[in-house]
């Protein structure tokens, strides 16, 4: 167990500091790269908030889809990749389409929640 502040609190305060105090002092390319850096910290912030629970659910979905007891998320995804590549699992397989949408929407909610297709999916209640 780690002490406080939590990693989420630390990333959050550094991101706020960059946006509120560092960025206004910068210009040109340095400003652009600092903005990219602040956005990258926000990815980490959203991942810390969302991924722990989402990953547990993703593991459960993958175990069901693949009839597997594997608990490692990357190993499960590799297996899913293989099964899709060989055609063992297709979009007609019950649960696959829903799984791909759910996992992809989770990625987008962390990586790029402002992306046009993600916004569209939210509007269509796909999330």
């Amino acid at each position: 167990m780690q002490d406080l502040p939590t990693s989420l609190e630390i990333v959050g305060v550094v991101s706020d500091f960059m946006r509120e105090q560092v960025l206004p002092e910068l210009e040109g390319r340095t400003r652009f790269h600092a903005l990219v850096a602040a956005n990258a910290l926000d990815i980490v912030r959203r991942e810390l908030e969302t991924a722990p629970e989402a990953n547990v659910m993703e593991i459960a979905r993958l175990q069901a889809l693949l009839s597997s007891k594997e608990t490692d998320l990357e190993a499960l995804n590799k297996k899913l990749s293989d099964h899709i590549e060989t055609g063992a699992l297709t979009l007609e397989t019950p649960g696959l389409k829903e799984h791909l949408w759910t996992s992809t929407l989770t990625k987008l909610s962390i990586d790029q929640p402002k992306y046009s297709a993600y916004r569209k999916a939210v509007k269509e209640n796909r999330t």
Partner: peptide, 14 residues
């Protein structure tokens, strides 16, 4: 950071 943009193409593909 651009590595985290591959997910944009995944939602487009879906």
């Amino acid at each position: 950071a651009i590595g985290r943009r591959s997910s944009e193409t995944e939602i487009d593909l879906l």
